[in-house]
Structure formats: structure tokens, C-alpha cells
């Protein structure tokens, strides 16, 4: 009984039972009922995820501390970093919003990158999964919708248009670091298939 259960998979979105098919590298298996992608193994996906996450981490450090935007009006200038944007809500009632913004655009994306490196680096090297890899990967999946770096970038673009009439705005190095960060995040997520990751984690476990 247990053996036959291991050969089946229930679609996480609609509960339809399937026999686990053999899926070629680069191909996908979809649920027959709701079309959800069940398995999508890729060649070297683990290595790519680790490398992209590491790149993301480095870019994030640059994005936080380098000047982000620079504003000039009639000789008055002001540089601001992502850190300043976080502190924008720091007085009085709005202080919690400052924490929330910090979490959404900096802390959670960093946590997610670190979690993915922790889970995938040993796997990419062909080692056994790190201790607690399951919990860490589950945490990374919970964080996923709350890591909003890419939305922040669109927000910056909108803000630029709003102040364009008022002042001259120059984009700082951190802005470009953030743009790269968004591309890296999108690429990384495209290599990751949750069910496939779990199956691999399970196979490599002692």
C-alpha cells in the first residue's frame, strides 16, 4: 500500500490523483483536470537557483546602501537611498508602516535569497540536504508573495513621473541594482518547480 502511494501524486490545487509520470528534463507534466504544472524538472536548475540567489543577495546590499535617486531643484539637492524610503513613515502613528515597508522590500527578499541558498547549495553540489532544509524551504514558499522588490521598482517609476515636473531627478546606482535584482528574481522563480523540488529533497534524504 505504502509503495503504491509513493507512485502517486495529488494535484495541490484540485486534489486529482495521478500516477507520477516520467518527465524528461525540460518537459512539464500538467494536471489533467486543472492544468496546474505538477512537475517541471530542468537541467542544472539547482545550480542556477543558487547562483541567481547569490547574485540577488549581492545586488540587494548595493541597492540598500548606495544612493537611489537624486533630486535637484533650483540648486537644492537631495540624495536618498532605499533606507530613506523605509524611514519615510517613521514618525508617530505611521511607524509600523515603516517596518512593513522595510520587511516587504528588503528583509523578506533577503531572507528568501538566503533560505534558497541554504536549501539548494548542498543539493547543487550533490550532497545530502542541509539540516532543516524542509522547514527552510517551506518558509521560503510562505515568504514568496510578500517579497515585493519588483513592485517597489514600478513604484519608483511612478514616483519619478510625479516629481518630474517639480525637479530634475537623477537615477543613482542603487536604482539599477534594484532593476537587475528584479530580473534575477524572475529568472530564479522560473527555474523553480515546487513539487519537483520536494521530490528531489525527498530522494536525497537519508
Amino acid at each position: 500500500m505504502t509503495d503504491s502511494l509513493a507512485n502517486m501524486i495529488a494535484c495541490p490545487k484540485c486534489d486529482a490523483l495521478h500516477r507520477i509520470p516520467h518527465v524528461e528534463k525540460g518537459a512539464r507534466a500538467r494536471c489533467v483536470r486543472c492544468d496546474t504544472v505538477l512537475m517541471a524538472p530542468r537541467d542544472g536548475a539547482m545550480t542556477r537557483i543558487v547562483m541567481l540567489s547569490a547574485t540577488g543577495l549581492i545586488l540587494m546590499i548595493g541597492a540598500v546602501f548606495f544612493p537611489f535617486l537624486e533630486l535637484n531643484v533650483q540648486g537644492l539637492g537631495r540624495k536618498s537611498s532605499v533606507f530613506d524610503a523605509v524611514l519615510a513613515f517613521s514618525d508617530g502613528l505611521m511607524l509600523p508602516l515603516s517596518f512593513a515597508v522595510a520587511a516587504l522590500i528588503v528583509v523578506l527578499p533577503i531572507m528568501r535569497f538566503m533560505a534558497l541558498i541554504y536549501v539548494f547549495a548542498p543539493m547543487a553540489l550533490g550532497w545530502q540536504p542541509a539540516r532543516g532544509a524542509r522547514e527552510v524551504f517551506r518558509l521560503a514558499e510562505v515568504i514568496r508573495p510578500w517579497a515585493m522588490a519588483e513592485i517597489f521598482i514600478i513604484g519608483v517609476a511612478v514616483a519619478l513621473v510625479k516629481v518630474a515636473g517639480l525637479a530634475t531627478v537623477t537615477l543613482g546606482p542603487a536604482f539599477w541594482a534594484f532593476v537587475l535584482l528584479v530580473i534575477v528574481t524572475a529568472l530564479k522563480d522560473s527555474f523553480m518547480c515546487r513539487v519537483t523540488v520536494w521530490q528531489t529533497l525527498n530522494q536525497r534524504r537519508v
Binding site: 502517486m8 501524486i9 495529488a10 490523483l17 512539464r28 500538467r30 489533467v32 483536470r33 515546487r194 520536494w198
Partner: peptide
């Protein structure tokens, strides 16, 4: 490559089983 359905569409619950919503394991 579509996953092969186990006898038409039958759900894990109808088969008296539980499917994991996270990883699909039955």
C-alpha cells in the same frame, strides 16, 4: 507530457486518501 490520470479523474479524497497541498504527496 500530461500526467497520466489514475482511472479518469478521481480525487485523493474520493479514494480515501489525503493529498499534501504543499508537495502533492499522497
Amino acid at each position: 507530457a500530461n500526467a497520466e490520470p489514475a482511472q479518469g479523474v478521481i480525487t485523493a479524497r474520493a479514494a480515501g486518501l489525503i493529498g499534501c497541498a504543499e508537495c502533492g504527496r499522497v
